[in-house]
Amino acid sequence: MSILEVQNVNKSFGGLKALQNVNLSVEEGTIHAIIGPNGAGKSTLLNCFIGKLIPDTGTVNFNGQSLLGMKAHEINQTGVSRVFQTPEIFSDLTVYENVMIPCFAKRDGSFCLNALNRVKSEAEIHDKAEHMMEDVNMADKKDMVASSLSRGDKRRLEMAMCLAQDPQLLLLDEPTAGMARADTNNTIDLLAEIQNKRHITMAVIEHDMHVVFSLAQKISVLAQGTVIVEDLPENIKGHPKVQEAYLGGAH
């Protein structure tokens, strides 16, 4: 069953057609990679999922419900979380507070005027936050201010924040960009583990083919705003269209 269904999505910025008739369906419980050369429209497509951009035409359905016209926080409340290309975290707050906020958001919804409760007496939130930090191996850094973390740790923190919401669909925008090989491998293991343990559906945008082929169960190749191939990983590698898109035409 497909959890995310994208049909005939078009998006243009002025004269530039960023997306042309994009069709995509992400199967529940799988890791679906979206690859393509720079400027192929990968990030634009992701932005259409989360309400940052509104497609000119076409439909984006999540669990049969249209996401178009919904605000960012409403989309998130339906179960879609996103990890950004540059980690978006609460840099002035501690790691622990960073993880607690999505826990509160999950429990209390998009707004709750609980100005007289005490954060410290919210046992269930603390349990969950501790648990999340252990899952991403950051329990020892919980009192650090988030801005002082390394880039890899910031990414892990952001992942923990997204997982704290128990999303049904996790969107990852280049989760290993700018990471050293060891960190990249850690991230691969982490994502694989999350998928095994929680069966969260993931849509991953990635440049690093090593990451893509070690994780993805299905791959869509995007070039110049259209999906040129959607297939299993083993069929993608030698596909002539893919080689053409990346190498500028096989003559």
């Binding site: 989360i50 605000k71 960012a72 926080h73 998130n76 409340q77 979380s81 996103r82 978006e88 975290i89 609460f90 906020i101 999505p102 958001a105 999950k106 919804g109 998009s110 707004f111 924040m161 919401q165």
Partner: peptide, 9 residues
Amino acid sequence: NRLNYTGVN
């Protein structure tokens, strides 16, 4: 920004 994408209005 992050707060919005964390489901908070």
